[in-house]
Design a binder for these strands. Structure first.
Length: 429
RNA sequence: CGGGGCGUAGCGCAGUCCGGUAGCGCAUCUGCUUUGGGAGCAGAGGGUCGGCGGUUCGAAUCCGCCCGCCCCGACCA
């Protein structure tokens, strides 16, 4: 993509409305624009990251055997009356009426909806296990939205719902998602610590929230160093062992009862990016979602649900990966892999070389943002640092004369003068 | 929902206390010079001062009501 043809409204100064670093940087890098409190427009650069994050979540859900569907944002109130939540949910739920004065709501979550799908089509235990998920916008009318997309009112969330015949099956489904979550966050370069959360009405320790570590996180967390040594790439993950590892948020951490020896106890700040829980027949029972078992008896299906805050993750990633100059994207979620900088578009030799590199990067399928604008060098560097693409490939008049370009790593600030050919080899290899 | 604060050009702000025809920096446009870390000079454009009402000869400024947004706390992917 040529920057001269792109829409990247970067800000030189910090917007007054933003307090925390991810919010500031998202606004400054032209990723988002606020439309109302807690409601954001996603501009091209931000949208690309959102899609990258979404795609990783999708791939890991698919890999775990979940099936993607898409449920609507607007739901009828009657469905929520069946579970009793219409009255329970309170003001967080945005309630609307259609032209026929029927009560509707903008979904804050989809348990009722997915349970309805299930009960209308699934009759037998033989059709289980089943896990349906979707990635859809939610709305929760938070009293106080803040921190940009980290706590918006409208947010993109992946929510999966598992259906099993019995508790043993539900536990397997839960553990399956547990592992998928660890893989998902790890792929984005994040260390996610699963923490035992408030146990549901039925499940013992079958509720975990996933906190990622970032110095600016909202809550103080304590955890076993073993989490940092997790190898998710190979072999089996022992969920039983993992769920027994110690991890707690500030409120629950009790030094007196902490089983981790001091030298293995780590502490940090955490941002909650996922939450999974088992809730048994909480919805299936009142809503009549039943299956017939091998014994011919009809029983309510065992359920669990599994959320990941997709849009929140974009903010959380920036909290985890930034420095004083801007964002430092991990490659897996970077909006572009390479920022190609033509320092002097007015010089023929310099531009010829930069154009040629751009064509070759494109041909090789490398996502490249090509700064072909008339801006000055300093401004170009500042913008590249701000938007945080992993690699900066700098073509200047000096180097062009002697056939050299400069490759810089945003993360390590390492710089190397190379021939265009070897720079290309590094980026395409 | 309690407490605090802010709405003036695209962005960041001054002006409001003490009423008198709206200003600064950045950005934008034109020209010249410059050109490896947010350039210099000269010129230009851009405003229902959040909205409505009131007081006054006269309101960004004083009074009332409303709207929006931010921050701290109690709650949440």
């Amino acid at each position: 993509m040529r920057l001269s043809r792109y829409f990247l409204p970067v800000l030189k100064e910090d917007p007054a409305e933003a307090e925390i670093v991810s919010h500031r940087l998202m606004l400054r890098a032209g990723m988002i624009q606020q439309l109302a409190a807690g409601i954001y427009n996603w501009l091209p650069l931000g949208f690309r990251v959102l899609k990258k994050v979404e795609q990783i979540v999708r791939e890991e859900m698919d890999r775990a055997g979940a099936l993607e569907i898409l449920m609507p944002t607007i739901q009828p109130a009657d469905l929520w009356r069946e579970s009793g939540r219409y009255d329970d949910y309170g003001k967080e739920m945005l309630r609307v009426r259609d032209r026929h004065d029927r009560e509707m709501l903008y979904g804050p979550t989809n348990e009722e909806n997915v349970t309805d799908i299930f009960r209308r089509h699934v009759r037998s235990y033989r059709q289980l296990p089943l896990n349906l998920y979707h990635i859809q916008w939610k709305f929760r009318d938070e009293v106080r939205p803040r921190f940009g997309v980290m706590r918006g009112r409208e947010f993109l969330m992946k929510d999966a719902y598992s259906f099993d015949y019995d508790y043993a099956g539900a536990k397997r489904s839960y553990e399956n998602m547990f592992v998928a979550y660890l893989r998902t966050f790890r792929r984005m370069g994040l260390t996610a610590i699963p923490m035992q959360a408030e146990s549901g009405p039925i499940g013992g320790n079958m509720s975990h929230e996933f906190q990622i570590l970032a110095s600016t996180g909202e809550s103080q967390v304590y955890y076993d160093a073993a989490f940092e040594e997790l190898d998710l790439g190979s072999g089996e993950i022992d969920v039983e062992q993992l769920t027994n590892l110690y991890a707690a948020t500030d409120e629950k951490h009790d030094p007196a009862r902490c089983p981790v020896p001091p030298e293995r106890l780590r502490t940090g700040r955490g941002i909650e990016v996922g939450h999974i829980f088992y809730f048994g027949t909480k919805y299936s029972k009142p809503m009549g979602a039943t299956v017939t078992g091998p014994d011919g008896r009809e029983v309510p299906v065992e359920m669990g649900s599994y959320g990941i805050g997709v849009s929140r993750l974009v903010g959380a990633l920036i909290e985890a990966f930034h420095d004083e100059r801007g964002i430092v994207w991990p490659e897996a979620v970077a909006p572009f892999r390479v920022g190609l900088v033509n320092l002097r578009p007015d010089e023929a030799e310099c531009s010829r070389l930069a154009d040629d590199l751009y064509a070759k990067l494109r041909a090789a399928g490398v996502e490249t943002l090509y700064d072909d604008t008339e801006e000055r060098a300093g401004s170009k560097f500042a913008t590249m640092d701000l938007i945080g693409l992993p690699w900066q490939l700098v073509v200047g008049p000096r180097g062009a004369r002697v056939g050299l370009v400069e490759l810089r790593s945003r993360a390590t600030a390492e710089r190397q003068e190379l021939s265009p050919e070897s720079a290309l080899a590094r980026l395409t290899g």
